[in-house]
Design a protein around this nucleic acid. Structure first.
Lengths: 222, 222
DNA sequence: AAGATCAAAATTATAGATAATTTTGATCGC
DNA sequence: GCGATCAAAATTATCTATAATTTTGATCTT
């Protein structure tokens, strides 16, 4: 295989499956069958089961005893829930990170902001956006908080990819600029207020479904 | 056994180990050896490993590849982190729950508040306190948010039991009363502000260590 | 003695096999 | 035809066995 891997097989499987679920490669609600996954990765099903537990913890899968594991589905109310949690926790993290923000860190964020605005596809936009947010909150140094925020970002990305699968139009994110400027000027309250609003921005656009009908899709685009 | 159990063995083991860790029955930092646990529960180590993954997700244990699993340790900074997260998320939950708070729910909270003030030992205080908080935020109906809050409560309880292991003095919690009254009067902002402060109240008291020395212990008592 | 080195023991991680449960699909009765 | 019933197939959950890694402890060297 490509990587002999430092970490355990279960971790690798979990990471790959997570990517697929986030990217929408596996349909929400579809079953994850341990033997099939095990066969694909050429292992037994013990590591597979452990990988499932990790996915479950991240909220990407749900498992019912004796009935197996399914890819978690999501609706608008869940999108809103994740957005609200992200807003609350990122604000908290930013408040704690603020005293530790250096010029170098703000420059990294600036670069991420530019990459974001320049992105021509949803995947690279998401990567840059995540990098922007993470660079600002990471200096808080609160591991548990950061881990929770990461999981929420993964969930956000899932919604995003599901809706904007193919098309993406570059757009300048004014909020990102406002947040950065405020932080540069030491105006934490403006930064926090903007972030709180920003992270809950739910985009909305029509999406053509498999059956040909058009439905509204929602995603966190902040 | 006492319970043939509906759910899987792994879930049962995870629950029991979680109780022990929270109660302080297992020393922080000590290793959890899968074969020993497996022997105790008269199973093989496969379900034990899955239980470990669950504990890891709850933040009660940490696992290093090939080196096994340890009970997570914690220091004052982590106590503060959990308290801050709880405050942020419970405030969020309360805001969403407020429109759904009925008289019956407030009565349940009232009962929990009374049990709390009447508690003569730390364990029953913790149970009543958790019941109080949960009754107020549960009506928000946001599953992911509530699950996260529950995990944070478990972590809080761990700190609490570690510090107040034996002694406990009944005390009237004025914040609980303030929150309830505000909610009864429809004054959400007062309730939220009080809760935000309350959940971050870190108690502090001297504890005699095994070696006879006295050190400060900290715990979330809100 | 203190430290390094290597082998034995313990422990983790994975594989392969078995038991138990659920799902599927076909048959029977109405 | 439509629904219920039961058996076969598929799948999950667990157990036993094996391979790989880490830890432990004893010996040897300086």
């Amino acid at each position: 295989m490509t990587k002999p891997a430092e970490d355990t097989i279960a971790v690798r499987i979990a990471r790959i499956l997570a990517e697929r679920i986030i990217a929408g490669a596996i349909e929400p609600g579809s079953r994850l069958r341990q033997d099939h996954v095990a066969e694909e990765f050429a292992t037994s099903h013990v590591p597979v089961r452990e990988a499932f537990r990790r996915l479950e913890a991240q909220g990407l899968a749900i498992s019912e005893p004796r009935r197996g594991v399914r890819v978690a589905s999501f609706d608008l109310s869940e999108v809103k829930e994740v957005a609200a949690m992200r807003a609350a926790l990122e604000v908290l993290a930013l408040r704690h990170a603020a005293p530790h923000l250096t010029a170098a860190i703000l420059d990294q964020a600036e670069q991420a902001r530019r990459d974001c605005d320049a992105a021509t596809d949803v995947r690279s936009w998401e990567e840059a956006n995540r990098r922007f947010h993470r660079s600002l909150v990471a200096p808080c140094g609160m591991k548990r908080l950061l881990a929770t925020i990461d999981d929420l970002h993964a969930a956000s990305a899932r919604f995003l990819f599901s809706a904007w699968r193919s098309e993406w139009e570059a757009r300048t994110d004014h909020d990102h600029r406002t947040i950065l400027n405020a932080l540069r000027n030491g105006d934490l309250e403006t930064a926090v207020a903007t972030l709180a609003r920003h992270a809950q921005w739910i985009g909305e656009r029509p999406v053509r479904t498999a059956s040909g009908a058009t439905r509204e899709a929602f995603a966190i685009v902040g």
